[in-house]
């Protein structure tokens, strides 16, 4: 089997490839964005899963749950007013260093998926260890090794 024969080489290439991607991601931080609006003047921007921290009368300070970043957005005339304490996703155009929001989505239950995923995790682990057991050779199939 060519795949079995050349797998060590393939594995090493995959390891090097993943390391390169990780270095690229760590140095350029391209995947997750900061809330920084600089450089987006006149462009559309979506800020997702942000918490409304304070404000009123159309101007709100919003922040990210984990990183502690904060930014002011302007919500005059948007389809739904922002409410302090809610988790929202907003979309708009950056004008004068501020995001002029035109669309708002309020996440009513932002953590529900995490809670439900716990059940998914338990179900997955149950099924997985019904099929595989851990040994010194790695994960060994309980059914003997034949596939399909």
């Amino acid at each position: 089997m060519p795949l079995e024969k050349y797998y060590p080489l393939l594995w090493l290439s995959a390891l090097i490839g993943l390391i390169i991607l990780c270095v690229l991601a760590a140095t350029t931080s391209p995947i997750l964005e900061t809330l920084n609006l600089e450089g987006f003047e006149g462009k559309e921007r979506t800020l997702g899963f942000i918490t409304v921290l304070e404000g009123g009368d159309g101007r709100y300070l919003v922040g990210r749950m984990f990183t502690g970043e904060k930014v002011w957005v302007c919500c005059v005339g948007c389809d739904k007013p922002l409410v302090v304490g809610e988790v929202v996703s907003v979309h708009g155009v950056v004008r004068g260093g501020e995001l002029l929001v035109d669309r708002v989505h309020t996440h009513q239950h932002p953590w529900t998926s995490y809670y439900l995923s716990t059940f998914g995790l338990i179900a997955f682990l149950t099924l997985f260890f019904r099929e595989w057991r851990i040994s010194r050779r790695g994960f060994v199939p309980r059914w003997g090794g034949g596939v399909a």
């Binding site: 391209p30 995947i31 997750l32 964005e33 997702g48 899963f49 942000i50 995923s117």
Partner: peptide, 19 residues
């Protein structure tokens, strides 16, 4: 630009993925 234009995390839904 980025993979997630939406922010820090996209919520996982393992139930849907496993199903």
């Amino acid at each position: 630009m980025g993979l997630y234009h939406v922010g820090v995390v996209v919520l996982p839904d393992w139930v849907a993925h496993l199903l």
